[in-house]
Design a protein around this nucleic acid. Sequence first.
DNA 1: ATATCTGTGCACAATAGGTGCATGATCGAT
DNA 2: ATCGATCATGCACCTATTGTGCACAGATAT
Lengths: 310, 310
Amino acid sequence: MIDARLITLRVFARCGTIGATAELTGYSPSAVSAQLRELQRVLGMQLLTKDGRGVRLTAAGRYLVSGSDTLIAEWESLRAAAMEAGDQMPARFGLGGFSTAAAQLLAPLAATLRSTRPQLEVQVLEANPARCFDLLVAERIDLAVIVAMQSDTHAEDDPRFEQTVLLDDPLDVIIPSNHPLASRETVTLEELASEPWITEAVGSTYHSLFTAAFTAVGVTPRIAHEAVEWETQIAFVGAGLGVGLLPRLAPLRSAENVVRLRITGKGKPARRIVAAVRRGSIASPLIQESLDILQVRAKRILAARPEDDL
Amino acid sequence: MIDARLITLRVFARCGTIGATAELTGYSPSAVSAQLRELQRVLGMQLLTKDGRGVRLTAAGRYLVSGSDTLIAEWESLRAAAMEAGDQMPARFGLGGFSTAAAQLLAPLAATLRSTRPQLEVQVLEANPARCFDLLVAERIDLAVIVAMQSDTHAEDDPRFEQTVLLDDPLDVIIPSNHPLASRETVTLEELASEPWITEAVGSTYHSLFTAAFTAVGVTPRIAHEAVEWETQIAFVGAGLGVGLLPRLAPLRSAENVVRLRITGKGKPARRIVAAVRRGSIASPLIQESLDILQVRAKRILAARPEDDL
DNA sequence: ATATCTGTGCACAATAGGTGCATGATCGAT
DNA sequence: ATCGATCATGCACCTATTGTGCACAGATAT
C-alpha cells in the first residue's frame, strides 16, 4: 500500500541510474523519470539532482529512502498480521531463486502451492542472489531462495530483509573417471592443489565460494578454464581438461566419464542456502507456509545424505 | 505516500457508511465503493462484509485500520523529517477550523503564509471540531484549529493526532443593556442562575461548554431559547429575550443594546483552543512555522487582555 | 571530434479511476 | 403488508493519469 513511486525511488537509490531502475521495476526509462518527477511534485520536495550525465539523490531523497525501510517493514508486518487475522491469502505470489539449488527447492514449492491453492497466482523468476534482493525491494517477488555469499555478510542484518537458513549444501569435487584419484571415496583439497581447475568467471556468484574454499586450506589453485553452466563445467571435466567443484544439489546425470568425490579435511567447503523475504512479511501465513514447505524439503534432502555431512 | 485507498478505508472505519465516507473524502459513493473493492482485490483480503443495508469491516479490515495508525504516523514523521533535511516545503497546505475563534487565528495564519510563501497553495475549510478530525484523517487538511471538548477528552491521546494548546478563551456573559446588572463590570454565574438563557442546540459544540460551566457552580439554568449563530444569539439578547454566554474572541460589533460582562467566582468557564495535526507531521517545517505563527497570535490576544484573565 | 551513455520531452495509446444514474436490498414506519 | 427512505453497487460514459517509443540534449571517454 506504499505508493509505487516510493518503491521506484527505493529501487533507484539501490542501483543509481534511471535505466537500471526501469529494467528492474519493469517500467520504461521514461516512466521511471516521470514517476520520480511526479513524486517530487506531490511531496513538494526535490529528491534528485543532475550529476554528470546521470542523476543523484538529494539529502532529502536519501533521508526519505533510508527512512522508508522501517515504513515498508511496518507495512509488510501489518499486512501479514491482517492476513493472519482474517485467515486469508494474497492473490499473487512471486518467487525468486538462483541456479539448480534454488530450482530443487523452489520448483517443488511452486508445485505444492499451485496444487493446494489453485486460485493463487504463483510466479517464479530465476535470478542471481543480488538481483533477487533487488527484486524483493522492487516488490516483483515476495520470497527468494538464494545462496548466502560471504561478501554479502552485510545482507544478514539488512533492515529490508529477513533471512532463514534452509540448509548447508556441501561442495563436492568432480574429476575425470580416468583420474588416479577416481577410485577414492573422499579427497582433500590439498591433494588436488596442483590440478588444473575449472570454475566460473571472476566476480560470479560461485567464484567467491571457490576462492574461499581454498583460502581456508591455504593453497592457491591454478584456474585453467572457466565455465558458466554446470553442464559445461562437467563436460570440461569429462573431457579431461581439469577438475572442478560441484554443489551436492547439482545433479550429475549426463556424466558418464566423471566421478564425484566428497571433500574431507579441515576445508569442507559448503554453500549456505537461505530464504529471504521483505522484513515484516515473515508473519504472513502464505510466507510461513512456504517456509515450512521449504524447510521440510531441506530436511528431506539432508536426511538422504550420509551422516558425516550433517 | 500511503495509498489513497487505505486512507479511504480509514475514513470508512471512522464513519461506518460508504455515503458518509464519500462526503468526507470528496469522492462519490460509487468511487468509494470501487476503491474499497479494488483495495480488497489488490491486498487479496476481504475487508468488508454486508451488514443489513450497509457494510461492515471484517476482522482483517479492523486489524488493518487499527494498525495503519502507526503506519501513517511514521510516514508523516518521515515526510516531515525529509522536508526538514532538504529545507523544503509542500506545495499544498490545508487548514481547518471552526467558528469565529478559529477565524481569528486561521485567517491571519493563512494570510501570513500566502504572503511569505506565494507559491504555496493554502486552502482553508470551515468545519466543526469533529469534522476537522475527520478531515485530518481524510488528509483533506493538514492542520486544524479547534475547540477542545470535554467530551472529546479521549481525543487527547488519540494515536492519530498531536495537539498543541494555543490559548484558553474565557466565556463572557451578554445581557440586555437595560438589564439591572448591565452597569456591573463583572458577575457570577450564580447571580444569573434564574435568568432565561439562550444557548445553542443540544448536542452542538458549545452546548456542552454551557452545561459544563453551570454544573461546575452547581446551578441548573433555564434554557429559554436556542440559536445557532452568535449574531442570532446576540440579537435575541438585544431583544430582551434572555442572557447568553459569548466567547471573548467573538466580536460584539453589531450590538448597541447588549452589554458584555466578565464572569468571576469559582466558575470561570472557558473554552480551550488547540491546534491539531496528524501525528508525526508536527516536525514538518511548514507545520512548525504555522504553529509558531499561531502561538504568536495567541500570545498577542492574551496580552491585550486584563491580567486577571491570564 | 566522435561515439556512447545518460536522462528527458513529446505524441500517442492504454487504462485506471472518476461521475451520475439506475437498480437491488434492507429497514422502519405507517 | 406496503411504502418510502436509506445504502451499496453495477453500468455506461468520460476524464486524466500513466505508460510506451522515439527523438533529442547534455556529459564523458576515446
